[in-house]
């Protein structure tokens, strides 16, 4: 048993008649960036939510440091979540608060800080995503891409051990995409022990930032390897996805 991984073992999840996850096995190495790719609707977001304990799996285990968190009660889960930060696919910012207050929220909840110290941390997080001068704005005054960046800042601000990003760059312009990719990479490199799990559709970014890539297809992981392995694979479905071709084993 490797201690250096979050292990997902045979995770299964169905919604009514629809089997979304049919036995996902995946090792997410500690201290690295793992990128999960896969077609829209294959259950990538569901996988992240199960990992955060926001949804319960029907079957299977999630092992963190040897403990199976799928068995945890509410109180233990709360403790585990303290070690996680998550960027939701649709940002999920609190629309009753300003951008600044959104980013300050996890700090106010969990850390006793002086107002000045708090402002410094929040502004540093906002600066890392280029939003310092937008802190006073309400969430509904932001563009979609700005929301996404604010969500990244909110996830980063407490410096968690595990960062989960659900399509952090979808909907951003190319320069901002490169910037957020760079942010994910530099956060990773400057934080020893940080584990990042990124869901992405962006192949170029995947190749740029990933230490490990896994592809989810029809409810299971059909490919695991390095970015280099991904480029050289002869797995037909993976190749088709990576190259974005219409002809191949995957049909619409």
């Amino acid at each position: 048993m490797s201690e250096g991984c979050i292990r997902l073992v045979n995770l299964q999840k169905r919604f009514g008649a629809q089997e979304v996850l049919r036995g996902v096995n995946l090792d997410v190495p500690i201290g690295k960036i793992t990128v999960v790719i896969g077609r829209s609707g294959t259950g990538k977001s569901v996988l992240l939510k199960i990992l955060m304990g926001l949804m319960r799996a029907d079957e299977g285990q999630i092992l963190i440091g040897g403990a199976n968190i799928t068995r945890f009660g509410d109180r233990e889960l709360l403790k585990v979540r303290n070690r996680f930060g998550m960027v939701f696919q649709h940002s999920a910012l609190f629309d009753s608060m300003s951008v600044f207050e959104n980013v300050a929220f996890p700090l106010r909840e969990h850390e006793r800080l002086r107002e000045r110290e708090l402002a410094a941390r929040v502004n540093a997080a906002l600066a890392s995503v280029g939003l310092v001068e937008h802190g006073h704005k309400d969430v509904h005054q932001l563009s979609g891409g700005m929301r996404k960046r604010a969500a990244v800042a909110r996830a980063l601000v407490r410096k968690p051990e595990f960062l989960l990003y659900d399509e952090p760059t979808t909907g951003l312009d190319p320069i901002m995409t490169a910037h957020v990719d760079e942010l994910i990479r530099s956060t990773q490199d400057s934080t020893p022990g940080l584990t990042s799990l990124v869901i992405s559709h962006d192949m170029a970014a995947t190749l740029r930032i990933a230490d490990k890539v896994a592809m989810l297809h029809e409810g299971a992981v059909i490919f695991e390897g390095t970015a280099e392995d991904l480029q050289n694979t002869d797995h037909a479905a993976v190749r088709q996805f990576v190259e974005g071709r219409l002809d191949g084993p995957i049909h619409l």
């Binding site: 998550m86 939701f88 999920a92 629309d95």
Partner: peptide, 12 residues
């Protein structure tokens, strides 16, 4: 809009 999930993800 998943704001409740977000609260939970922040251990609240």
């Amino acid at each position: 809009t998943e704001q409740i999930d977000a609260l939970e993800s922040m251990a609240v």
